[in-house]
Computed example of a mutant assay.
Amino acid sequence: MPVVTYTLWRLSLFAVTLVVLVWVGMGSWLAIVLAAVIAWALSYVLLGRQRDAAALHLAQRAKPGRSAPADAEVEDAALDAAERERGAA
């Protein structure tokens, strides 16, 4: 959930910035590019806590053995199955 929260905050910053730039009369493609740069800078400054929470959440999900088997175990099982098939044939 922290990743979704962080993403929604960043998208909101982009949308608000884009609306303000279009409202002041900036051209369409330039407004999009400038809104992306301004939203990036604002998110870097304002959303540090949300960014850290999202990064921690992703790091915890990436730990091996959490809910999915480690890659080495999956590879070993596939190799064992292939050797059994060759031996049976």
Rank of each mutant, 00 (worst) to 15 (best):
V4D: 09
T5G: 05
T7R: 14
W9H: 12
W9A: 07
L11Q: 08
S12Y: 06
S12W: 08
S12F: 07
L13W: 04
A15E: 13
A15Y: 04
A15W: 07
A15H: 08
V16I: 15
V16M: 06
V16R: 05
T17S: 08
L18C: 05
L18E: 01
V22A: 01
W23G: 01
W23K: 04
W23H: 03
V24H: 00
V24Q: 06
V24A: 07
V24P: 10
V24I: 14
M26Y: 02
G27M: 00
G27E: 05
G27V: 01
S28M: 14
L30G: 14
L30R: 08
L30H: 10
A31R: 00
V33S: 08
V33Q: 11
A36N: 09
V37L: 15
A39T: 06
W40M: 02
W40S: 03
A41W: 01
L42C: 11
V45P: 00
V45F: 06
L46S: 02
L47T: 03
G48F: 01
R49E: 15
R49F: 08
Q50Y: 09
R51A: 15
R51F: 13
D52K: 14
A53I: 02
A55M: 15
L58D: 13
Q60M: 15
Q60W: 04
R61K: 04
A62H: 01
A62W: 00
G65I: 00
G65M: 09
R66S: 03
S67A: 00
P69Y: 00
P69G: 04
P69I: 04
P69S: 00
P69H: 05
D71Q: 04
A72F: 06
A72E: 10
E73F: 02
E73Y: 01
E73V: 06
V74S: 09
E75L: 15
D76Y: 14
A77D: 14
A78Y: 09
A78P: 07
L79V: 12
D80P: 06
A81F: 03
A81D: 14
A82Q: 04
A82S: 08
E83R: 13
E83D: 13
R84M: 13
E85G: 00
R86N: 15
R86T: 05
G87E: 15
A89C: 10
A89H: 03
